[in-house]
């Protein structure tokens, strides 16, 4: 077994174990924290697949932003953070069956693809994916306009969030 395979197996075991903890733990805050472990495992998988930028984005967006949102949502909606409900509801077997079917269907679909059994191809030497992305983002022939429009979009999101929060504050 190569080192890459050992790393993959450990990462996969951590992802599956923490994902199982997310759905079985009764404390919602603990579920959110286990979710961070799962997302970090996914970032490690991206890194082993030569997708360094995606791995960084996974850490910054999913662990940095989405997990914060989850924890804030739990903290703001629960009266006490020790609130626990039953872990299972009546439809648990149905959702388990759908999850298994989806997994089986995905495995069946992807195994038909030619790259399924191949390792991730290495970049040609001297090729820097992040630098190529940076050049594409700021060069006038490529995506400089979407790059600046993304800034305006983020500005709109920020102003919208402040506006909504301000309205709430006034109502109190």
């Amino acid at each position: 077994m190569t080192a890459a395979q050992i790393i993959f197996l450990i990462t996969a075991a951590v992802i599956l174990g923490s994902a199982f903890m997310v759905v079985t733990t009764k404390n919602l805050v603990h579920a959110a924290l286990w979710l961070i472990v799962t997302l970090f495992g996914a970032a490690v998988l991206f890194a082993t697949l030569n997708a360094g930028f995606i791995a960084v984005v996974q850490v910054v967006i999913y662990i940095g932003a989405i997990a914060i949102l989850f924890i804030f949502a739990v903290m703001l909606t629960r009266r006490s953070m020790t609130d626990t409900g039953p872990g299972l509801n009546r439809g648990w077997w149905l959702s388990a069956a759908i999850a298994l079917l989806t997994f089986g269907g995905l495995v069946w679909l992807v195994s038909g693809w030619g790259g399924f059994t191949k390792a991730a191809p290495a970049y040609p030497s001297g090729f820097d994916a992040v630098a190529a992305l940076a050049h594409a983002l700021v060069s006038p022939e490529a995506f400089v306009l979407p790059f600046e429009v993304a800034s305006v979009l983020l500005l709109a999101a920020l102003v919208g969030a402040v506006y909504i929060a301000f309205q709430r504050k006034g109502e109190e």
Binding site: V57, I61, S151, L154, A161
Partner: peptide, 12 residues
């Protein structure tokens, strides 16, 4: 959150 997403664009 907004500045976190900004980081993704500014990182490369």
């Amino acid at each position: 959150l907004v500045f976190d997403v900004e980081t993704v664009f500014l990182f490369p």
